[in-house]
């Protein structure tokens, strides 16, 4: 109760990391894990296209998007470090089952399946945009302060994906590949809007996020389905027939800690050097985000 009084005294805004109640901190953590884990793992998958993209120019562009995602993950993990965690705790020594990213971002790419990379990026970035907008007025100032910088980089990601989709779907082979990627990925994209657990309700209740997951999912469907359909891609025919969204979800959604087999494998590869060299900390190169600039 004391905490919520505190919150009201600040016009509904929460205090700094040291001033949060246990419940508030749990909700902030829930939100940051969703954000950070999604960005880290998506960036990790994108890097598979480095030196393997269709052309040199497209290689450079997707590499940059991967770096953007890592950079965003870095900002969100840094907010978790406010609570005493280290990068080692959060990435390198963390149990893969504790990661909260949606399964959309962990799925491996089939060799040469550029359509997957583009469709995945389109579905993710459309959701990411809504999610970030819902954080611009977050009650947690540390979070709200970082949103704008991230948002402006995400704009390029959406343009990039839309431009590619228009071009790939102009021909029969590309359209077929995009359709097949959409069929496979759509259920996993819906997982983006799944709650991490009970504390996700607190994320809304405490004003950390100004739109609920359900509301964002509706907006997302209203954005992506018409666009894909304009390109001749039918993403979720079941939805038009009145099927419940929940029934389309994949077996593992990621948010609740259930993952596909691809994830622990990926995590093992990512942490291999760290383990082989017997490292106990992850070395920084850049300044702390709070000191940068």
């Amino acid at each position: 109760m004391a905490a919520s009084t505190e919150r009201n005294e600040r016009d509904g805004r929460l205090g700094g990391p040291d001033e949060l109640s246990e419940r508030e901190q749990a909700a902030v953590e829930t939100l940051c894990y969703r954000l950070a884990d999604d960005e880290l793992v998506l960036g990790e998958r994108y890097t598979e296209w480095q030196v393997r993209a269709p052309t040199l120019e497209s290689d450079l562009a997707l590499s940059n998007i991967a770096q953007d995602e890592f950079g965003h993950a870095r900002l969100w993990y840094d907010l978790l470090e406010d609570f005493g965690y280290t990068e080692a705790d959060l990435i390198f020594e963390r149990d893969p089952g504790a990661f909260r990213h949606a399964t959309l971002v962990e799925l491996p790419f089939e060799k040469g399946d550029w359509a997957d990379a583009i469709v995945r990026s389109y579905l993710y970035d459309a959701a990411e945009h809504l999610r970030l907008e819902a954080l611009e007025n977050s009650s947690y100032p540390r979070l709200a302060d970082r949103v704008r910088k991230v948002l402006s980089e995400e704009r390029y990601h959406r343009e990039h994906a839309r431009n590619w989709l228009e071009r790939l779907t102009a021909g029969a082979e590309g359209r077929e590949r995009v359709q097949s990627a959409a069929d496979r990925l759509f259920p996993h994209a819906l997982a983006l809007f799944e709650p991490v657990g009970e504390s996700d309700a607190d994320v809304d209740a405490l004003g950390l996020r100004t739109e609920s997951l359900d509301s964002m999912r509706e907006q997302w469907l209203d954005t992506v389905l018409p666009f894909l359909s304009s390109l001749g891609i039918d993403a979720a025919p079941e939805l038009c027939e009145g099927t419940d969204v929940e029934s389309l979800l994949p077996e593992s959604v990621g948010r609740d800690g259930s993952h596909t087999d691809a994830w622990p494998e990926l995590h093992a590869e990512m942490t291999r050097t760290y383990r082989d060299l017997g490292r106990t900390e992850a070395r920084r190169i850049m300044s702390d985000p709070d000191d940068a600039e």
Binding site: T47, V51, L60, R74, E87, M270, R279, R283, I285, M286
Partner: peptide
């Protein structure tokens, strides 16, 4: 390129990705 994935910290991962990007 494989060392982007195998980098033992997030900053190193960024640097390795940027370096590989530069080479391309």
């Amino acid at each position: 390129k494989p060392f982007i994935r195998q980098s033992p910290s997030l900053d190193r991962k960024l640097a390795f990705s940027a370096k590989t990007q530069d080479e391309i």
